[in-house]
């Protein structure tokens, strides 16, 4: 290629790059920059003061660990459930598969607020679940199912499972059926085929989809607010409070940076783990 034409083509991305910088990168960086700026008596200076403050605050550390636990739990459970559902959609009875798929898509169209409020009804003190448990005599007193970590986790998993399922459908479809036929033909029952052939051949592509659920959950605000009843203080709630109640944007930015750092660390671990396996496979898939 002639160097002149290639650099001319490269100029074509300038408008897009400008748009990205002006409308996305600049506002975000400006906000995050605020975490390093400390105003004291009219004069402002660069400082890590916000970070040392946050790291010494027990409530922030509690929030971070609650967020990490919630998002990793949601990611893992959604990955398992989403995988099983996607497997049903792709590999089993076409009618059942289609029903699952349509139900999952329909739930994606529903507002997350409506879904959280739905769980409030279901899990309520006199809600259908408690009533049913009392009616069959499993418990004598209604359980506290709402306004706690479990309720938030249930709500988050409910939101992430369809997303993960839709993401996993192509992963499962990409595995030729002949692998399963070969295993079954060699005498493996279906469950064993699933465990010894299907999972080992797809997990490294499936796990990154679970990562999407972890990342999305870590920044979630509505569900922890609506189902946590103030008892599940995730980092998103702290950020909202810092910026909209205390108007301390520097502190809000600090918390955002810490959230991003924590989730990036999780992402790096997961991707390194799966990338290594995939590299091994990539050499094999060329044949």
């Amino acid at each position: 290629m002639i160097p002149g034409t290639s650099s001319l083509f490269r100029l074509g991305i300038v408008p897009l790059a400008l748009f990205f910088v002006v409308f996305f990168a600049y506002p975000v960086l400006h906000f995050l920059w605020g975490s390093l700026v400390v105003g004291a008596g009219g004069a402002s200076s660069l400082s890590l003061h916000n970070f040392t403050d946050a790291l010494h605050s027990p409530s922030v550390l509690r929030s971070l660990s609650a967020t990490l636990l919630l998002s990793v739990l949601t990611g893992v459970v959604s990955l398992v459930l989403g995988y099983l559902l996607a497997f049903q959609v792709v590999r089993r009875n076409a009618v059942i598969g289609r029903i699952i798929f349509v139900a999952a898509i329909a739930s994606l169209f529903t507002s997350t607020i409506a879904r959280a409020l739905g769980w409030r009804v279901l899990l309520g003190f006199e809600g259908p679940i408690n009533n049913a448990l009392v009616a069959i005599g499993l418990i004598s007193q209604p359980l506290q199912l709402i306004n706690n970590f479990t309720a938030v986790a249930i709500g988050m998993i409910h939101i992430q499972v369809p997303v993960v399922m839709v993401g996993l459908i192509p992963v499962i479809e990409a595995l030729p059926r002949d692998f399963e036929r070969a295993a079954i033909g060699l005498g493996a029952p279906r469950w064993k085929t699933f465990l010894t052939v299907h999972l080992p051949m797809t997990w490294m592509n499936a796990v990154p989809v679970g990562l999407i659920a972890i990342m999305a959950t870590a920044a979630y605000f509505t569900t922890p607010v609506l189902l946590g009843g103030g008892r599940v203080d995730v980092i998103a709630i702290q950020i909202q409070q810092a910026s909209q109640v205390l108007f301390d944007f520097g502190y809000a930015a600090t918390l955002s940076v810490m959230l991003v750092a924590m989730i990036s660390a999780v992402a790096v671990v997961v991707l390194l783990l799966t990338h290594w396996r995939r590299n091994v496979r990539a050499r094999g898939s060329s044949s």
């Binding site: 692998f179 079954i184 033909g185 029952p189 080992p200």
Partner: peptide, 19 residues
């Protein structure tokens, strides 16, 4: 079902288990 038929099969592209 196929797992009880004791029939050996060689597939197109061989489908050896890569792991």
């Amino acid at each position: 079902p196929p797992q009880f038929r004791d029939i050996g099969m060689v597939f197109q592209n061989f489908v050896l288990f890569p792991h």
